[in-house]
């Protein structure tokens, strides 16, 4: 069975370590915040100028001055801090953020990512994505394995305009967890009940399979 969006997020949450500063992108990455393992303290960074992002406010407690990078109303947790956009990207550029999780339209086998522009369609912009992928030390992509037309999103080379080059470290899709290595996509784990053959057939880039590949556990 292919993973749900929630399961993709839950699997990525296993990468969190105590004390991490984490930036979560819009979409599936945002859901990772719901699965922070027990006993682990992570601080969520929102690139519009907040460290220590909390959950959505209770109804009636929304504050228009307090939003996340997706423009959603949010709250803060004890110990939070506000800052301007230059400092926000300053801490990202300086490598202070331990983990960045973001979505993608395509990832290449050498870790290039495309997620901001489809030529010929309305282009909304890169927002902070180019800054994040250029500087973060640890980038995990959360996405589905195939595009809506059924084509693989894991490619030898990206076909869409790039957001960043050689920057992605790990990908978690609805079918598999894969690491970017010098040789290509290395299969780390399979979604429960999904075969290596199925993952192979849906991965257009070079896939490396070593030994028995375990199933993910939820």
């Amino acid at each position: 069975m292919a993973l749900t969006k929630e399961q993709i997020a839950k699997h990525i949450a296993k990468e969190l370590r105590d004390g991490y500063y984490v930036n979560l992108g819009i979409g599936i990455p945002t859901l990772v915040a719901n699965y922070i393992p027990e006993g682990i303290n992570v601080v969520l960074q929102s690139e519009n100028g907040l460290l220590g992002m909390g959950p959505f406010p209770f109804e009636g407690e929304e504050d228009p001055d307090l939003i996340n990078a997706g423009k959603q109303t949010i709250t803060t947790v004890p110990g939070s801090a506000f800052f301007d956009s230059a400092m926000s990207f300053g801490m990202i550029r300086a490598g202070k953020v331990d983990l960045t999780v973001l979505g993608a339209m395509e990832v290449s086998e050498r870790g290039d990512i495309a997620n901001w522009k489809i030529p010929g369609k309305m282009v909304k912009g890169m927002g902070g994505a180019m800054d994040l992928v250029a500087s973060a030390r640890n980038i995990i992509v959360a996405m589905v394995h195939s595009n809506p037309k059924g084509g693989s999103k894991l490619l030898p080379e990206c076909t869409l305009p790039l957001t960043g080059v050689r920057c992605v470290r790990k990908i978690v899709t609805d079918l598999a967890e894969l690491d970017i290595t010098n040789e290509g996509f290395k299969l780390i784990a399979r979604a429960p009940g999904v075969s290596v053959e199925e993952i192979k057939s849906k991965t257009a880039g070079k896939l490396i399979v070593e030994g028995d590949v375990p199933e993910m556990i939820f």
Partner: peptide, 21 residues
Amino acid sequence: LLSGELEVELIPQGTLASRCL
């Protein structure tokens, strides 16, 4: 934008912030 009445230059958010700084 699509009719060509409006010109748009898209730049990375951190670059935008740093160019102000």
